[in-house]
Design a protein around this nucleic acid. Sequence first.
DNA 1: CATACTGATGTAAGCGCTTACATCAATTGT
DNA 2: ACAATTGATGTAAGCGCTTACATCAGTATG
Lengths: 329, 329
Amino acid sequence: MVTLADVARQAGVSSATASRVFGRPDMVGAETRAIVIEAADRLGYVANSTARALAMGSSGLLGLVVPQLSSSYFAPLISAVQSEVERSGFELIIVDSRGCPESEIEIARRLRGRVDGIIFASPRSPGAALAEAARAFPVVTVNRELPDIDSVSVDVIAGLTELCELLITAGHRTIAYLGGPPGSISDDGRFLTARTVIGDNGGEVLRFGPVEPTVSAGAESLSMLQEAGVHAVIAYNALVAHGLMFAAATVGARVPDDLAVAAVDDLIDIGLGLPSLTAITQPMGEAGSRAGRMLVGQAARPSGTDPDTRARTIQHLVLPSTLVIGETC
Amino acid sequence: MVTLADVARQAGVSSATASRVFGRPDMVGAETRAIVIEAADRLGYVANSTARALAMGSSGLLGLVVPQLSSSYFAPLISAVQSEVERSGFELIIVDSRGCPESEIEIARRLRGRVDGIIFASPRSPGAALAEAARAFPVVTVNRELPDIDSVSVDVIAGLTELCELLITAGHRTIAYLGGPPGSISDDGRFLTARTVIGDNGGEVLRFGPVEPTVSAGAESLSMLQEAGVHAVIAYNALVAHGLMFAAATVGARVPDDLAVAAVDDLIDIGLGLPSLTAITQPMGEAGSRAGRMLVGQAARPSGTDPDTRARTIQHLVLPSTLVIGETC
DNA sequence: CATACTGATGTAAGCGCTTACATCAATTGT
DNA sequence: ACAATTGATGTAAGCGCTTACATCAGTATG
C-alpha cells in the first residue's frame, strides 16, 4: 500500500505539501504540484480515505436507509439521492431495512460514527427512536414529519383529495379504497383522507384489502368489488389497478363505465393496451434530490461551530403530487 | 462526540482496557468489563469506526457495484450479498454504475482505500481495467470470468442449450431470438449459443430486437415475428415474453400451438392468467451469497501475511440455471 | 522462600492523513 | 535599502482507535 509519505519522498517534498496537492491544489506552486502528481501516479497512489476521514473528522459518507431496495417506488428516489450526494463529493451507503422498524434503528446505530448523515426513506420506526438517532447528528426523513428532524414529504393527500372530488363530480357516491399491506402509516392516512373528502360530499368509502402489490392480486380483487356493488375504486398501487382493469376486460366489464379505476401511484405502465390510468404521480426523484441536498447541507456544516450557529431551523419540505387524469375515470 | 478516552476516564481505567472491552472482551476482568460497559452507555458512547478502521488497517466495508439498482434481475443478488456480508460483520456499500463501463472503474477508484473489497455484478468494463482494479485488492465478479479474479457466474448457456433441444424436439426448425439492449455481453453469448445448438440440429435462429425490457415492447414485437413466419421464440426477458403472449391472445394466436414462447429469465409473473412460461431460472440469490462469501473470505485474510500464503487459487464458481418447462412450449 | 509463570492492566507507538503554525525566500512599498 | 507583506513549503501535533510490550500482582512450583 503506497502512502502519501511515499509519494512525498519520491517527489522530494514534505508530506504536508503532498497532502495539499490533493486537498488544496492552489496552495502549492504549479511546478511542485506537477512533480507530486507525477510521483503519485507513477507509484499508483490512492488516497486512504479512512485516514483522511479521521483527520478531517468526517467520512464523506452518507447513509440512505430504505424499507425495500428493489421497490420501484423507491428506485427514482435512490437514484436521485445518489446523484445529488455524489455531486457534492460524498459517497452513499444504501442499506435495506427490509421494512423492519427495529432494524432501522439498529442500522442507524451501526452507521453512526461511520457516516456523516442519514436519510431515512419512509421510516416505520417510532418517532422517539428516530429522534434519538438524530440527536446531534444530521438526519433527514422522507415521507415522515417529525418535530426536530428535517424532512421532505410528498403530499399524496392533496392529489388524493383532488381525485376524490373528481370521482364525486363524476357522480360516484360509493367508492372503494383498495389498500396495501398493513403497517404502512401512509395507507391509513390515504384511507382517512378519502373517507373525509368523500364523506364531506355525501359519499361513502368502503375499505377493501389489504392486497399484495401485484397485478394478479388486483385481478383477484375484482369479484370482491363487484359483489359489493361498487363502480369506482381507488387502488393504492398501479400494479393492482392494472390487475383490476385486466380482470374487468376479461369478464367484459367496461372501464370506466362499469368501473372507474384510479391509483395512488403510476409506477409502472405495463403497456397492455389498457386505457391510460388516472393516477396520482409522486415526484420521488425530486424528493430524493431535495433530501440529498438537505442532508449534504447539514453534513457539510462544520461540526465545530458553536451551538447557536448550529441551531438551524428545522425544514419540512412538502412536494405536491399531481393528479394525472387518464381514461379510467 | 464522546470518545473511548472519555469512557476510560469515566470508568477509571486506561483507554487500552476500554478498547479491549469492546474488541477482545475476554482479555478483561469481568468486573472491569462491567464498569466500562456501564460507563460507556451512560455516556452514550458510539465507537468511531473510522478510527478503528485506520488503526486496524481495514474498514469493515465492502462494495457492491451493480449496473442498475432498481432491476428485478439484481434485486435477489443485492439482497443476498447484503445478508451474507452483514452476517460476517461487514457493512455493504452499494453503488449504481448506471450500466456505464467508465463509471464502473471510476467507482472502483473511489471505493478503493475506503472499502476492503468489491463485488462487480455483471460488469461491462474491459477486462484489463477490472484486472487493474483487482490488483492487490479483493475483488469478485459476478457473471464475468476473468483469469485473475474470483468469480461466480450463472450458467445460462446450459439451460439455454437444454431449451434449444426442447424446441428442436418439439419439431421447431426456425426459431427467433428476441434480444435485449445492446452492449450486453451475455446477450451476444446467448444468441451464439442458441445458434450453435440449433444449427447443430439442422435448425436456424433468427435474431430480432433489440427490444426494451417491457411488456409493451414484447407485445409490439409479435407482428414482426409473425411476418417473419416464426412459430417459436426465445425472449431474453420474461416481461417481453409476457408481452408476446398477451399480444398473441389479443390477435387470437394460440400459445404454444401457433407460437411457442420461452424466456431466459422468469423474474416476474405478472399473473395475467396466461399459460405458465417456459423459462430459464437463474439463481441470482445464490450467486449473491456465494459472491459475498468469497469476498469476505478474501477481505478477512490479513493483508500482512506473506505473498506465498496470499497467493490463493483463483476460484471460478459456476451455478447451474434451471430450465423450468411451462405450458408455453 | 525464591523463581517462574499467569492474567489483568497500563504505557506509548503507531495507522495515514490534515492543518495550525513556523520558516524562509521573494516581492513590495517608502 | 530596509521593513512589511506575501506565497510556498516544512514541522509537528493531532484525529480516535488498536496493540505490542512493559508492568505488576497473585499464584504455582521446586
